[in-house]
Design a protein around this nucleic acid. Structure first.
Length: 552
RNA sequence: AGCUCUGUGGUGUAACGGGUAACACACGUGACUUUGACUCACGUAUUUCAGGUUCAAAUCCUGACGGAGCUGCCA
């Protein structure tokens, strides 16, 4: 065992440390067990980082196991996307990916064992009858009339279930536990049901499928999982998990520990709501950059390392939580601030003419403000340029540090200019700003000691490339949309704002998803749909801004 | 109402029963700055409440109050 110091500790690691020092285990084996019925999201990332992170730090193993016991809801496309997302996050599971369905034969055998022990029975009650007999949270349940069927008869019925001799819903296999238990899941839970469904792994071999509670614990035991980590809503199920393990002939005793699931402000993470967002076309798809899915976050421009860092920062407890979006944003900003090349892009252009400038030149501009190893690029400087409309005011108070009529400002990576006059359209909007420039200010302050406070970005009008820039904001207008009666009603109409921008020519050299900083704006990346003919940039996250937000 | 779990700055977490409750994010103030970025400095908590045990309590005990989960042939 290595010293698990690379990640912050948590209560689960304390348990593992104790198990290791007490000799309960001499190794650690975890697993990430998604059901292949949807796309992974940031909440899954928390579980992935927890399970794989523990395996890494304790030099143990972590399996990827698809919990595929409900063929009606599952699909091979989901298993493929899940595998891809786990690997993209930077993790590799132990050996080949596993499936609960790999154990269907063994599971069936253990079910037979329970029947033989008089601990399971085939129930022919209807679903409604079973529900009524289950009782409520405060009222105990009552025994099914089939509860005392003879073992031989149960064996026969279960065999017929397996052979397809009963219709779906006609009967099911139940564990015989305790109908008066305070834990609802212990009131003779169904452990096998009939489904004449095609399974993506076992095809048409089975028409009976084991339930989660019966499957998961046995799968863990078969794989030798030492610590089975899941979310809080399975706390009650732990009693059933332990009951099954204790009542079948299996050596390994895995233990289940529950942690709280992630809640992120201004988004939703429940599968049901995510599906609704896609189905109702509130977003363009599962990989829409506004989605909290791994695919969406990836397309938004987040790196695997930034998500791993996020999962590390939020920690793991059993407390209910609501993590601020700023926590996630800080993670990608930290990484991109260090690694992303700087570029200039004008999102809402207004023309500016430098009247006393004539000969075009190509200026050297550093790719990073402090890391010189990142080199420089050439930027065309011409008589006509574009600047951000929001970076000019005819008049402003001293707090405004940008270009003001009659005042000076520094053009980033270039000269100091002074606004002399403006040209307006019939509506009074500024359509062109006429300036003069100080030729002796390239790479240095004015020789006479004048102080020029502001710096604005710009791009040559004749060399600029047109680009579609997608400005993403929070998908919802409220911190906890899931708490709303109609969460879709709180979707942010400004969650995507598309602008036609002017960008510097060197932006052509970037690969899709590669992080870039548009100076003074934020971090962006070329969208996966971008081409050299049609440049599309996604805003990953804005820069921190201690001044008032831009108008965009 | 029954059972289970859970209450530490604005948010997320940390703290062998022992030092002025630590860290990150956020926020505020100031410095620096050819990004209103970055960086740096400083600031923000009677650990839900009330008792109790102890030389010593966020930590242990009791009670109260708050929050979450559980009544699929879903996972």
């Amino acid at each position: 065992m290595t010293d698990p110091v690379s990640r912050p500790t948590n209560f689960i690691r304390h348990i593992i440390d104790k198990d290791l020092t007490d000799g309960v285990h001499d190794h650690v084996a975890t697993r990430f067990p998604p059901e292949p019925n949807g796309y992974l999201h940031i909440g899954h990332a928390k579980s992935i980082c927890l399970n794989f992170g523990i395996a890494e730090d304790y030099e143990g193993t972590c399996n990827l196991r698809f919990d595929d016991t409900n063929p009606e809801k599952e699909d091979i496309d989901f298993v493929n996307s899940i595998k891809q997302d786990v690997q993209w996050l930077g993790f590799q599971w132990q050996g080949k990916e596993l499936y609960s369905s790999d154990y269907f034969d063994q599971l069936h055998g253990y079910a037979v064992e329970l029947i033989e022990k008089g601990l399971a029975f085939v129930d022919f009650s209807s679903q409604d009858e079973i529900r009524e007999m289950r009782g409520t949270l405060t009222a105990p349940g009552v025994n099914s009339p089939y509860r005392d069927t003879a073992v031989t008869e149960n064996l026969m019925h279960f065999e017929k279930m397996k052979n397809g001799e009963y219709a779906e819903g006609e009967c099911c296999l139940r564990a015989k536990i305790e109908m008066t238990s305070a834990f609802m899941c212990m009131r003779d839970p169904v452990i096998y049901r009939i489904k004449f469904a095609h399974h993506h792994q076992t095809l048409d071999k089975w028409c009976i499928y084991p339930m989660y509670d019966f499957t998961h614990c046995i799968s863990d035991a078969i794989e030798g999982i030492t610590h089975s980590l899941c979310t809080l809503e399975f706390q009650d199920n732990r009693r059933l998990y332990d009951w099954v393990i204790e009542n079948i002939s299996i050596e390994c005793i895995p233990r289940q520990y529950e942690f709280s699931r992630l809640n992120l402000e201004y988004t939703v993470l429940s599968k049901r709501r995510l599906i609704q967002l896609v189905d109702d076309n509130h977003v363009s798809g599962w990989d829409d950059p506004r989605m909290p899915t791994i695919a969406g976050i990836r397309r938004r421009g987040y790196s695997p390392a930034s998500i791993r860092e996020f999962c590390q920062r939020i920690g793991v407890t059993k407390m209910d939580n609501m993590v601020e979006m700023s926590m996630l944003e800080a993670c990608i900003r930290d990484e991109l601030n260090a690694n992303a090349k700087r570029r200039m892009a004008v999102l809402e252009p207004v023309k500016l003419v430098i009247e006393n400038f004539s000969n075009d030149e190509w200026l050297d501009a550093p790719n990073h403000p402090v890391n010189e190893e990142m080199g420089t690029r050439k930027v065309p400087f011409t008589k006509e340029i574009f600047i951000e409309a929001d970076d000019f005011r005819e008049q402003a108070n001293k707090k405004y540090k940008r270009l003001v009529l009659g005042k000076e400002v520094r053009l980033r990576n270039a000269y100091v200019i002074k606004a002399e006059r403006v040209e307006k359209d019939e509506n009074g909007n500024v359509v062109c700003i006429y300036c003069s420039y100080d030729a002796d200010t390239l790479g240095k302050d004015p020789a006479d000691g004048r102080k020029v406070k502001g710096v604005i970005h710009w791009v040559s009008a004749s060399h600029a490339l047109n680009a579609e820039v997608r400005l993403y904001n929070t998908l919802f207008t409220v911190p906890n949309p899931a708490a709303e009666e109609d969460f879709a009603g709180t979707i942010n109409p400004q969650s995507l704002v598309v602008v036609n921008a002017k960008v510097e020519p060197s932006l052509l050299e970037f690969e899709p998803l590669q992080g870039i900083q548009f100076e003074r704006q934020g971090y962006f990346c070329r969208d996966v749909d971008t081409t050299d003919d049609k440049l599309i940039f996604n805003r990953t996250v804005e820069l921190r801004d201690s001044f008032a937000k831009f108008g965009s």
